[in-house]
């Protein structure tokens, strides 16, 4: 199974996923340092999904779920390193996994269905619409839920990654008092 052809295929897959992720990331104007991270995450996620699809017997929705979960975990790790919200690079790195061909086939089959006047063959088209449509929806949900599960596991870290502590103020009770008083305390 792990011959050199398979490994080359995975590496190519990673490379193109990274390029795709950079392109889709710049639409939403991310911070410059986040672009490379999202490319890396997309390469890891998509390459891993490719491995799961070709190397194991998993179907596309479960494979997408696992890949998205890994992206979510890694994104929280990187978020702590470079002080950016995790979604800034986890969202663009999911985009290469969006089930575009299934969505296209759903639209194509729907247009065929409108134009089809023959009753028996339209039943086949309905099966096409349903099969491709449900795959699209399931993969989309697997991606979103997979990436957000780590965000809930590490809920507090998710919201405090952008914090850059310059000094540690242990007496948090100060914050409950109005501003004027805070300044007086600081002067003392």
């Amino acid at each position: 199974m792990m011959n050199s052809d398979f490994i080359t295929a995975i590496i190519f897959d990673c490379f193109f996923a990274a390029v795709a992720s950079i392109g889709f990331a710049v639409i939403s104007n991310p911070p410059r340092k986040a672009i490379l991270v999202s490319a890396f995450l997309a390469a890891v996620g998509h390459g891993f999904r490719y491995f799961l699809l070709k190397g194991t017997s998993l179907d596309i929705s479960s494979a997408s779920f696992i890949a998205a979960f890994i992206i979510g975990m890694l994104s929280i790790l990187f978020a702590k390193k470079i002080h950016c919200p995790a979604e800034v690079f986890s969202f663009p790195s999911l985009l290469p996994m969006i089930p575009g061909m299934y969505a296209y086939k759903t639209v194509l089959a729907s247009v065929k269905f409108i134009q089809c006047e023959d009753y028996p063959s339209s039943i086949n088209i309905i099966v096409d619409i349903f099969r491709n449509g449900t795959t699209t929806v399931f993969v989309l949900f697997a991606l979103v839920v997979g990436v957000s599960v780590p965000m809930f596991i590490f809920h507090n870290q998710t919201f405090s990654v952008t914090r850059i502590l310059k000094f540690v103020n242990k007496d948090r009770r100060i914050l409950d008092k109005p501003r004027v008083e805070i300044e007086q305390i600081d002067e003392r």
């Binding site: 104007n29 991310p30 919200p85 800034v88 914090r163 850059i164 310059k166 000094f167």
Partner: peptide, 20 residues
């Protein structure tokens, strides 16, 4: 338009306001 840079820097700003 979507803008993740503003998202990220405004989040940092809120922590800065809180800490400093």
């Amino acid at each position: 338009a979507l803008n993740f840079e503003i998202n990220s820097r405004l989040s940092s700003l809120s922590w800065e306001a809180y800490d400093e």
